Simulated scan of single mutants.
Amino acid sequence: MTATLQAPAFTKDQCAAGLRTAVNILEKWQASTEQACRILRISRSTHARAKLRNADWSVSLDPDQMQRVSFILNIHAALRLIFDNPENTYGFAAMPNHNEFFNGRSPLEVMAQGDMISLYESFRRIDSLRGAQW
């Protein structure tokens, strides 16, 4: 007999709340609709519904999509710890970054490539600025 581990299931309401928050953060980071959809791996229609902030709206997200939402929330939390002014907290993601990994691209550009590795590495590099050790 083999045991399989399953990721905890999220309710549709939890998915909607997380997605709304991530979309709001990406909007404050000045991400385009296309960038946000690639980062979160969602359709344009789901993105549009998430922006409506309709309390009755719910959505099912798969584990990959929820992990992407989690990375956006955690990057935002790290930026709030690093910076004490909104201009940097919300502007950092769109600023060109000349550190080795970003090579002159903004974190938003890198994350918008749409693959999980780019999103994870962007999170890891930004989180390390607050002194996090991996």
Rank of each mutant, 00 (worst) to 15 (best):
F10L: 13
I82S: 03
A112P: 07
L40V: 14
M95Y: 02
L5G: 12
E121H: 09
D84F: 05
Q14G: 04
N54F: 09
F102P: 01
P63Q: 14
A55Q: 15
I126D: 00
Q133G: 09
E34W: 09
I39W: 03
D127F: 03
N97I: 07
F71C: 02
Q65I: 07
A31C: 05
D64H: 13
W29I: 07
L108Y: 02
V23P: 01
Y120C: 04
D115S: 07
P8C: 06
F92R: 08
V23T: 03
T89C: 03
L108I: 13
N99I: 10
L61D: 02
A93S: 08
L61M: 09
S122L: 11
D84W: 04
A36F: 00
Q133K: 13
M95P: 03
L5Y: 14
Q133T: 13
L52E: 15
L26R: 02
R130G: 12
C15G: 05
M95A: 08
S45F: 09
T33W: 00
R20I: 10
N74K: 12
A50Y: 05
E109D: 10
F102R: 03
F10S: 08
R38V: 02
Y120W: 13
S43N: 11
P8E: 15
S58Q: 14
W57Q: 11
K12T: 12
F101R: 12
G18C: 08
E27C: 06
G18E: 04
A17T: 09
E109M: 06
I126F: 01
M1Y: 10
N24W: 03
R80L: 10
F101Y: 15
I25C: 04
L19T: 04
I117F: 14
K28Q: 09
N74Y: 09
A112E: 04
S128R: 13
M1V: 13
Q65K: 07
N54D: 14
S32H: 07
P8M: 06
G91M: 02
K12A: 15
Q6M: 14
R105Q: 05
L81K: 14
A16D: 06
P107T: 11
Q67A: 06
I126P: 00
S106P: 08
T33P: 05
C15R: 01
F83H: 06
K28Y: 10
D115I: 11
F101L: 10
D64F: 10
Q65R: 04
E87H: 07
R124T: 02
G91W: 04
A55T: 06
N99E: 15
V23G: 02
R20Q: 15
D127T: 05
P107I: 02
C37K: 00
K51R: 15
S70E: 02
I39Y: 01
C37F: 05
R68E: 05
